[in-house]
Amino acid sequence: MEQPLIDIQGVGKDFPYGSQILRVLQGIDLQVRPGEALSIMGPSGSGKSTLMNIIGCMDRPSRGRYRLADQDVDELAERDLCKVRNRTIGFVFQSFHLLPRLTAWRNVEIPMLYGGVSTEDRRERSKDLLERVGLGHRLHHRPNELSGGERQRVGIARALALEPALILADEPTGNLDQRTGKDILRLFSTLHREGKTIIVVTHDPDVARWADRIITIKDGRLV
């Protein structure tokens, strides 16, 4: 059998809450194959953001094992986690999280900056990526000169910068109107067809339906 890209076994996460401990995630088992398109659904407060942070290596589980791309993430030092976020994961955020002072072109360059790509390659690749998401004419625009849909496209171009194994999107259509949201999902479908592994985290069943597989999380457990 093919090695899963994501292999989560018995993962739990606790947060201190006053003098008590809040069990936000419990006994999560999840495998994601390379090339899969997955939706993680759940109402707010269900623990899906925490799960996403763990998958995205922004946070560490309190219990259980997490392997990402054949690496035991739990055993990695902070420095290496940064590298994993940089190389292996491409984040797409609900509120885009572009740097407001930088042009679309420079925004897409950021992961490559930290990934040690040379200036020339960076320029070239950033431009290619923006053209690929249909923003070849918006290279020199700053985020506030772009529409919501365009901003999210810049965000996706940025997520693709270092050819990550996994695209992790947190409510990618949450701040967009329905039509633009559909466009973004279509873009994800294109990427999926090209072989990308994509995880979309959402509370919206219409968005979740986009994926091959939907998993639902409720009160910190998968159902």
């Binding site: 922004m58 976020r85 999280h97 930290y114």
Partner: peptide
């Protein structure tokens, strides 16, 4: 703060 968060999410190390 948010810029720092974005940079960290995109792979910047604390030292960077």
């Amino acid at each position: 703060t948010r810029e720092i968060g974005i940079r960290r999410a995109l792979g910047a190390t604390p030292n960077q």
